[in-house]
Design a protein around this nucleic acid. Sequence first.
RNA 1: GUGGGCGUAGCUCAGGUGGUUAGAGCGCCAGGUUGUGGCCCUGGAGGCCGUGGGUUCAAGUCCCAUCGCUCACCCCA
Length: 428
Amino acid sequence: MLHKALPGFRDFYPPEFAVRSHITGVWREIAHRFGFEEYDGPPLEALELYVEKSGEEIVGQLYNFVDKGERAVALRPEMTPTLARRVAARAAGLRKPIRWFSVPQLFRYERTQRGRLREHFQWNVDILGEEAVAADAEVLAVALAALQALGLTGDDVVARYNDRRLLERLGLGAGGGADRLLATYLAIDKLTREPREVIRDRLVSVAGIGATVADAVLAIFQYRDLAELRLAFGKSESVLRELDRLEAYGAQLARLGFGAYTAFDPTIVRGLAYYTGTVFEIFDRRGELRAICGGGRYDNLLRNIGAVSLPAVGFGMGDVVLGELLAERGLLPAHRPRADYYLIAVTEAERPVLLQVAGALRARGAAVLYGLKHANVGKQFKDADARGAREVLVFGPEELAAGQVVHRVMGTGEERRTPLSEWLGGGA
RNA sequence: GUGGGCGUAGCUCAGGUGGUUAGAGCGCCAGGUUGUGGCCCUGGAGGCCGUGGGUUCAAGUCCCAUCGCUCACCCCA
């Protein structure tokens, strides 16, 4: 056992790779179905790209080092800064709204635990250049469509959504600057995990807001749905506007077929600094795992990073937690090697013909296997079975003399003689 | 970074209170079977019992350290 993967890094043996491939395959398929184009960038970036104000809280867990050219670099911990920078550089020439997706491998240096490694693959989908709520709905819809395609229903997962603008209108930002607002979001983010008193203390001590305001803020969360909030705060024009937008968001998602997958939840705020509007997180309904996916609107990030003003909305969905959930629900396809044909030579003398047929079949697109060293027929059949061959062709001296080969269908055991020319033919 | 639990074959695990050459099932390889797979039978390879140190006549077993995995914190992709 000389070389194991570094802590938090995974080896993908064929069975594990099959799982990863299944998940990323669905991601790509669904992204294309929604009209998103794939892009990528380097996995290693200048450290400063992440140290900038786009997300201070990430920096402490960066996988960073100094390279041989004495550049401070970091393995990318998230895709959004890369995306923002690239889009900003070419924004003028890109048709808006920009609909892009990516499946980058991302890295963070931190203690590993369930659902959290030092490396994972994350599906990123973003729409840039559109502030209409339809863009927000489209982005969440594509995330849910992928989960649906993977076999998860509205009974398995739920997307809880909210809008930071609503919380601001409700008084969250009362008398505070951006820093205070973010600290308040971070405190609220823990609302479901920690006792109310702890949150209240944190609002006062860390976020620096007054005790009475803190109580007012916490009071917001006794209202669990939009109708209740409308009754309680409907007098305010600006609150109404936000409630209307959230209603529209939910209604559009329902129209797109995901009503059973979505629910408004005022406690969802997300920890990242750059979100400015809608935010959402997707959880397993049983609440056994971490969030499967998180995203939202970040209208100021491109202006901050690239001096181009483009509203944006997107999400990231990792392969680790999702893989755990799919495994628990028995939704991962069984990994079994597959081949269309396994060719068997009875004696070495038939090998040249066998190779010729293998070539012809492969040229037609079939998956073809045969033993690389001679073995008795029983052994070869055993190998054909173990490697998942659907059909077997037996090349024996007797049949070849008559211009025939034996064709056996493994599933049924049905077997008959067929003309060799049929297998050598180049036509489809 | 903090605390708890766990490290025996490729995998899943046995190995009472220390006691000879460390076991099973599955998997893998070979044979039974030189023209027919799944089942069965036989044999084999594969372990410095995570690593290092200590206690002891004797350590897979007890002690310490360390590394790794894991769970909970911290924090969040």
